[in-house]
C-alpha cells in the first residue's frame, strides 16, 4: 500500500503541520508553567479572594472539556468583539487548560514541603515571598518535576484538538490530505509516526531531567513536635 511517491508527496505538508504542533505545544506549555505556578501560589495565598478566584478557575477548567474551551475562545469570543487567529486561540486554549492542572501540581508540591521549613525561614526573618523563592520552591521542584514531565509529554498529543478550530497542525494537515486523497491508512500512519517521533524523545528528555534531580536532598522529617 505504501508507496515512496505518496510519502514524498504527503511529507512536506505533514511536516509543516508537525512544526505548528510543536510550536503550539511549546508556547502553550511555557505559558501554562508560568500561569500554573502563579495560580498554584494563589491557591494557598493568605488573601481569600485570590484563593477563591484560583479555586473557581481550576474547578471550572477541570470540569469542562478542552474541546469546548477551544470552541469558546475561537467561536464565542468574537461575539464579544475578540477575534483571535486559530494559532493564538489554540495556544491560549491549551495554556488556560494546562494552567489549571499545573496549578494543582504546583500547589500540592508546595504543600508537600514540611511546615518546619516555613517556620525555619520565618524564624530568621524571611518574608513569605522570599521563603517561597529560596526555600520552598527549590525543594518542591524535586517533587513536581515528574508530574510536570507527564504534562509536557501529553501536551503534544492534546494539541491535536486545536485542529477543530481550523489550525493546520499535524492532525488537521493529515485530515485534509486524507479527505482529499482517500489514502486514510497511509496518511494517518504517517501522522501517528510523526506524533510518536515527537513524543518519544520528549519522554526521554523528561526521564533525563528526572534522573538529574538528586532525590537524596529531600527533606528528612525527624520526630514530631511535642
Amino acid at each position: 500500500m505504501f508507496s515512496l511517491d505518496d510519502m514524498i508527496q504527503f511529507l512536506p505538508s505533514l511536516l509543516h503541520g508537525a512544526l505548528l504542533t510543536i510550536a503550539v505545544s511549546l508556547l502553550a506549555f511555557a505559558l501554562a508553567m508560568v500561569c500554573g505556578l502563579l495560580t498554584g501560589i494563589a491557591r494557598i495565598s493568605r488573601l481569600w479572594p485570590l484563593r477563591a478566584v484560583s479555586a473557581v478557575y481550576i474547578q471550572f477548567i477541570r470540569g469542562t472539556p478542552l474541546l469546548l474551551q477551544l470552541f469558546f475562545i475561537y467561536y464565542v469570543l468574537p461575539y464579544g468583539g475578540i477575534v483571535l487567529s486559530p494559532f493564538v486561540s489554540g495556544v491560549l486554549g491549551l495554556a488556560l487548560n494546562y494552567t489549571a492542572y499545573m496549578a494543582e501540581v504546583f500547589r500540592s508540591g508546595i504543600q508537600a514541603i514540611p511546615k518546619g521549613q516555613w517556620e525555619a525561614g520565618a524564624s530568621v526573618g524571611m518574608s513569605r515571598r522570599l521563603m517561597l523563592r529560596r526555600i520552598i520552591l527549590p525543594q518542591a521542584v524535586r517533587i513536581i518535576v515528574p508530574s510536570i514531565g507527564n504534562f509536557f509529554v501529553s501536551i503534544f498529543k492534546d494539541s491535536a484538538l486545536v485542529s477543530v478550530i481550523t489550525m493546520r497542525d499535524l492532525m488537521f494537515s493529515g485530515q485534509l490530505l486524507a479527505s482529499a486523497t482517500y489514502k486514510h491508512f497511509e496518511i494517518f500512519a504517517m501522522v501517528a509516526a510523526i506524533y510518536f517521533l515527537i513524543s518519544y524523545p520528549t519522554a526521554k528528555f523528561v526521564e533525563w531531567i528526572e534522573a538529574r534531580i538528586d532525590v537524596t536532598r529531600r527533606p528528612v522529617v525527624i520526630g514530631m513536635r511535642g
Binding site: E119, S123, P219
Partner: peptide, 20 residues
C-alpha cells in the same frame, strides 16, 4: 514582624535545616 524575628534566633526540635 519579620524585622523582629530576624533579631530572635530559634532552634527547633526537628532541626528544620534547609535540605537543598
Amino acid at each position: 514582624i519579620e524585622a523582629i524575628r530576624a533579631q530572635i534566633g530559634m532552634v527547633f526540635q526537628s532541626f528544620n535545616l534547609f535540605p537543598h
